[in-house]
Structures are given as C-alpha cells and as structure tokens.
Amino acid sequence: MQRIHVIGGGFAGLTAAVTAAESGAQVTLHEAHHTLGGRARTAEGPYRINEGPHALYNGGPHWTWLARRGLLGPVAAVPLLEGTRFRFRRDGVSRRTPPLGMLRLARRSARHAPVDADYLGWAGGQVGEEGARAAAHYMGVALFHHDPGSLSAAFVQERFRRAAALPPEARYPVGGWAQVVDRMAAHARNLGVRVETTARIDAPALAALARTGPVIVATSLDAARTLLDDPALTWDSGRTALIDLAVRTRRGDAFVVSDLDAPGWIERFSAQDRTLAPAGEQLVQGHVPIAPGAPKADGVARAEQLLDLGFDGWRDRVTWRREALATGRTGAVDRPGTTWRDRPSIIRGDGVFLAGDQVAAPGLLSEVSFNSGIEAATLALKAAERRTDTGADLRSA
C-alpha cells in the first residue's frame, strides 16, 4: 500500500493518522510547529491553560474511540458543589436561575427545529422572546458566535440540548488537553507513524507528496484554502475575545458566569482540575464572541463585567493574565438553509482529502474534527488500495 501523508498534527490530523495506521497503512504526519496538538495545546508552566476553552462531551463519538484505545486518561466532571455556584447575568445583574422559557426550550427535541428558519425566530415561537433570547446567548459557550440567534434553528437547538443537559455532558481532561494529545501521539508512533515536526508544507511540496500516495490536509480552513489554491474553501465561523486569569483563591467565587444579555462565558477551570494552577490560586478563562470588525477590547471589557459579577475583588487578586483573539478558529456555524453537508467536502480530488472543524462532518465542537479525520482516513485508505492495485496490474501486464 502507498504511504498516506497527513498535513497537520492537531486533533483531526492525529485521529486520521491513527485510523490509517491501525489499518496497516504507512503514514507520515507533517506538522509545521515544534509540537503537536494544534488548538488542543496546553500552555507550559504553572498555569496550564488550554489554547481556548476545551471540553469532551461524554455522549460524543470520540469519547468511546479514545477510551477503547486507552487514550482518554483521567477526566474530571463538574463538581457537585461547584454546580451550585453557577451564575447568570440577566438584565445586568447576577442571578441564580435562567428564565423559565430557556429551561423549557432545553427539553424541546432538535428534530422539530427547522433548518431553514433562524433560531431566535423559531425559539421565540416555542417559548417566547425572553427564553429564546436567553437560550441563544447561552449558546455562546459552544458556538463562539456573536449572534447565535441568527443561525439555523436546527443547528443551534441540537447543540443547545447537549450544552444544557443535566447532568452535564462536559468532561475535562486532567492536566489539560495536551495530555490527550500526548497519548494520541505516542499511540501513533507505536503504530509506526512517522512524525515530522517543523515540517511546513507548501503547495509544490503537497503536489510532490500527492504523487507518492493520498494526502489528508488537516489544517485550518484558511490554511487549506491557500495550500490547495481553492477559493471555494470558506465557511462561517466565530470571532471570540479570550481572557485567561490566575487569581488568588477566595471562598464564594463563582464556578461559571453565563451572560444571557449577550453571548459570553466565564469558567473557573481549576475548580474541577486543581493541577492547572499552583496551590492557593485559581485558573479562570473567559470567552466573549464579538462581531466582525469589533476590537478585541470590546470583548475583554464585557468579560471583565462578568468577572465583576462572579469574582469579588478579582482585580486585586490577579497573579497572571493573558488576552487573545480567536478568528476563524472556533469551528463551523451553519446559517439558515444549510447543514454540515453543505460545508466544504472532505473529498478534494486527485487523492487529496480534507479534515478539520469546518468541513462536511457532523458533531459538536471537536467532534467535527474527529469525525472528519476518521472519514478522511477511510477514504485515503481506499484510494491507496486502488492505486496499489492499479500499479500491481500494470506491473503484471
């Protein structure tokens, strides 16, 4: 069988490489950075913050896949006590409960939500405008989009049902996502995958690789568009201001502050995993979606307002701080009239396949990367077999 090349060592690329290698293929993984992981990296040092908020959902497809291979590792659930420290910003003040309409909407099946309608309009017809708008804003936690109410009702409701499930589906890899990445990378190497870091692939290099076997491009969609010289590789995503803080521990701090006046979310990640920060300190991460063209400062200011509601005196307790802007790195969002099937196809032709979180694959957040990585690897294996069989036939003739 011909060698399969995977470009990009993030979650999608590692999933594709492992899948192909487990089927007996020779695989080379090319990663431009010094380390693997992509957006699933975890910072080094005393504050082990993920590169953006990350959680595994225990009802998702990659949960079982990782567990069967011994790659899941220890995970933490939301502590029962911390669940009582969930706060909602409503009408500018902190409240302990969301509107009743939002809770009613969480029980509505996604099967009844139309693809062609916008979420706010459909949900408003179900439970009224207050509950619909609160639910749309709550979904900033899983969509990273400044206006979830404008997206497809079917798309948002499917994710709202999972993000608002009780008990919560979210689980957190102990030590950060880098622990999962390290286990996946070790498993790939044990399967014989050749891992080449600091290996930046350009268009001519990709063309040369494609002559030796199938290629899976597991990069961001922006990078894939340039690499494949294909302007059609576009899809809507979110734009989010990120703020990471370490603060000295204080009793009574909120676990989560969810903004129901506009999309925004603050979470104390060290509440469920104390290994993420030194003793006596708490690690807090916030993300606030902002509109195209809006400055990062707008999102940071709103995050600070949420911190004021849940973390008394936090400014005097800060021991470390970092801010960032995530643009086009927050996964695909589907507009009314579209589904995941309308996104850029995994099959690009001439033995080239696409994987990542903005391509034609189902799932919530990282599940899209996982599902597309599996599918791309499966298709690449079939392509490699066809090439090998054709070559054998020619040699025989």
Rank of each mutant, 00 (worst) to 15 (best):
A208C: 03
Q285D: 05
R200M: 03
Q272N: 06
L276K: 02
H287I: 00
L233N: 04
A277L: 04
I243P: 00
A203P: 06
R225H: 06
D236M: 00
A297Q: 12
A205S: 13
V288D: 04
T275Y: 03
P204N: 12
A232P: 00
R200Y: 01
S258M: 13
V195D: 02
D222G: 13
D202T: 13
I243R: 11
D222I: 06
V256Q: 15
V215S: 10
D202Y: 05
A291Y: 00
G238H: 08
I243M: 10
R200V: 06
T240F: 05
A254V: 02
T275E: 06
K296D: 01
P292L: 05
Q282K: 01
L233K: 08
T197W: 05
L221W: 11
D229G: 06
P292H: 07
L209P: 08
R274W: 01
D230I: 10
A208H: 14
E267W: 06
E196F: 01
W265P: 00
F269C: 04
D273Q: 10
D261E: 10
D202G: 07
L283F: 06
A262T: 09
V195L: 04
A232K: 02
H287C: 05
V195E: 06
S220R: 05
A291K: 09
V288H: 06
S220N: 00
A291I: 04
R248P: 07
I290N: 11
L227N: 07
G293C: 06
T234N: 02
G286C: 15
W265M: 14
I216P: 07
A262F: 12
S220G: 14
D236E: 14
P214E: 05
T198L: 11
V288E: 09
A232T: 13
A291D: 06
A207N: 15
S237V: 07
T198G: 08
A241H: 09
D261L: 14
T219N: 04
Q285E: 10
V256S: 02
V288Q: 12
G286D: 04
T240Y: 03
R200P: 01
A205E: 15
A199M: 04
A232M: 01
I243V: 15
G252K: 09
T197F: 03
